[in-house]
Every structure is written in structure tokens, then in C-alpha cells.
Simulated assay, not measured.
Amino acid sequence: MDLAGDGLMRILVVNAGSVSLKLALLDGEHLLANQHVEIASVEEGERSLSEALADLDNPDAVGHRVVHGGGVFTDAVRIDVEVRDRLGDFVALAPLHQPSALAGIDLVSQVLPGVPAVACFDTAFHATMPPAASTYAIPAEWRDKHGLRRYGFHGLSHAYASRRAAAMVGSPIEELRIVVCHLGAGASLCAIRAGESIDTTMGFTPLEGLVMASRPGNVDPGLLVWLLRNTGIGIDDLDEALEHRSGLMGLAGTPDMRVVIERAQAGEDAALVALEVYLHRLRAGIASMAASLGGLDVLVFTGGVGENAPVIRAGAATGLGFLGVEVDAERNADADGDSEIGAPTASVRCLVIGAREDLEIVREVRRVLQPSGSQEPTRS
């Protein structure tokens, strides 16, 4: 297949879950079709995927979202046998996500054996972080032997949102200091200077950083050691609780921010505390990212919570006036789609941007397969 021309490719974007594949077929920036394929078994998955692809029309290329590239893959890469095998080495780094991505790669390659495929990594965008931001202050032999460092995640979302933000404010991204708040079930912040990640809140795993739906964010490691030593809680129990029973779930009994906000507005004590803890961590994180940048030009909210919770956006801005952040109440309440919500007099531009990892994957696939050439997808 000739992929060297300047015509737009039809790219199948694959986001693999534990028992499903989310498929989206795009031609440049335009979504042509999408499908959700349930996978009960390999055989069932092949049949369901074949049926879905019949409706989607055969793509020219495939882009797979892969959570972890370890310290090896710091950019998108065309998948071959060697790459596929190497990706398996990172299962221990992302045991909840990497096996699903690998299963998706295997299944799609079986159904579309002649179609070139590209792995696009959530960790790759953060490969530009300097040692000051990526290094843990732990024994050197641990870091060197086991590759222990801060990797960061949500890179596809952060990369897209930062470029979209530059387009919205009408300035070259090379001149901007941007903090992107990706707030969803998982949540992270990213400090972006001149289009490159220089700091982020997630670390070696997606547990570090902000309070999330069911993950705690930052916890004193001594607390965890104490639990293991003194309570009878085992490693597996601890792991399960940190992944599924912490965060908003641990604070308010629900992982759903919409429910937390409703209960807080009704005066429920646990929900009020959950909201206060969430916003306290979020404000502190934004200020920390701005400090990494040496200032702030643009603040972006994206992800399910970032896009749909005006209360969170307003609460995050409260107390950040010293950075030049001020949200306009009417703009914030009325935001629909990509919108500017900052006060007209504020020195920091404040934006809501729809999360479009699919467009970032399309961009990376085209860059890998058409290195000489064509225009990347943009949005006006």
C-alpha cells in the first residue's frame, strides 16, 4: 500500500479495554464512523471485529492507544513483531491497561493483516521532562536496576489540548506556557512549555498526583508501609484499595463527580469534604505546574470532569488569582464545546477544550507513515 502521497488516510483508531474495543474511523479530523466491539473470546472478538469493520469500511492504517512505552518508546512507532514483543515487557508497569492494548493489537492485526499499524503512547509526550521532574529521590541502585522514574500519563490528551489551546488564543505554541488539567475518572496536570511536557502530576504509575474517581493521588509512602506492617492488610488488598476504593470513592462513597457535586450542594458532609479535598489538591497542583513553567499564559480544562463541571473549574480558579487566573461566571456556566471561560481582564487565558485523543493518534499515525508530508489534522 502506498502511503507516501498527500491524500488523507482513513485511520482506524483503536482504544482497547479489558473486554471491548472502541473503534473510530477518521479521515483527517473528520469522524466517519465509530463502533464498540464486545469481546467474549478471541474467536468471538475476531467475528465481532470483522462485522464492525465491514460497517466501518476498510481503513488505510490503524492507530492503537497504548498506555505505556516504558523508557524505550518515546515516540509513536510502527508496529512489527519486534515492537509487539517489546511492548509485552511493560505489562508489569501497567498491569490494568497494557494487556488490553496488546490483545487489541493482536486481534486487529489478525483481522487486518495487511494494514500498517502504529502504537501511540500515553507516556511518550512526557519523555521531554527534565531529570529534575522525572527523577525520584530513592536509592540510585533501585532507579538504575528497575527503571524507576516518573513516566507520566494522559500524554495524548495533553499534547492535543496544548496545540488546540495555542490555536484558540492565536499564539504560536512555542511562545506559550500552558497548564492542561485532564480531569476525568483518571486525572493529571501537565506543564507545557513551547509544546513540550516539562512536568506532570502522575508518576511511575497513574496512582500519583491528583485525587481521582477511585485512586487517591499522593499518599505518604510511610502510611502504606505502616498499613502493611501493622494491620494485616496484604499487598493485593492494598493494591485493590488504591486502584478501586480510594479517591472520591473513598471520600464520598461514589466515584462519580456528578453525584459528589449534587450531594455537596445538598449539604452532605462527606461530599463536601470530598469536594474540598479534590479542589485543594487541584489548586495546589496547578500552582506547582505554573512554578515549573516560571509563570502561566494559558490554563486548560479537558476530560469528562474538566469539560462538564463548571463548579470544579470555578473552584479550581478560586485562590489562583495571584497567578492571573480568573474565571468569568457567565462564560463558565455557559461553556459548550471548546470555549474561553476566563475573565476578559485576566492575564491568563482560561479555556475548556474537548478531549480528542483520537485526533492526536491520527496525527501521530500520519507522522509515522507519511514522514515527508501531509497536513496534520487541526481544528479551527
Rank of each mutant, 00 (worst) to 15 (best):
V83P: 02
P344S: 03
V211F: 10
I312Q: 07
D328E: 11
M202W: 06
G319K: 11
N308F: 13
E46V: 10
S188I: 09
V77L: 11
G170P: 08
G104V: 07
L156P: 09
K22A: 11
S48H: 07
E175D: 14
A117N: 08
E268I: 00
A194E: 14
S18D: 09
D6I: 14
W142H: 09
T200E: 15
G306L: 01
H126C: 06
D6F: 12
G147C: 02
V72D: 11
D60M: 04
H30Q: 15
L176D: 12
S157F: 02
F204G: 02
P255T: 07
C190D: 13
G217Q: 01
E196V: 12
D6W: 10
H158A: 10
D236F: 02
L3K: 06
L8W: 11
E326P: 01
G253W: 00
P172D: 05
G45F: 04
A40E: 13
M249P: 00
L156A: 05
F90E: 04
E243Q: 11
R150V: 06
D199R: 02
S18A: 10
Q110F: 04
S109M: 06
V66M: 04
Q35S: 14
E141Y: 12
A252F: 00
V14N: 14
A92S: 13
E175K: 15
F153C: 12
V327T: 15
L224F: 07
V72L: 06
C120Q: 01
A333P: 01
A132G: 07
P371H: 05
D57I: 11
D55M: 13
M289G: 08
V111L: 07
A191M: 04
C120A: 02
S100Q: 12
L238N: 03
L207H: 03
R215A: 03
L31I: 04
S292C: 14
S288H: 14
E38L: 07
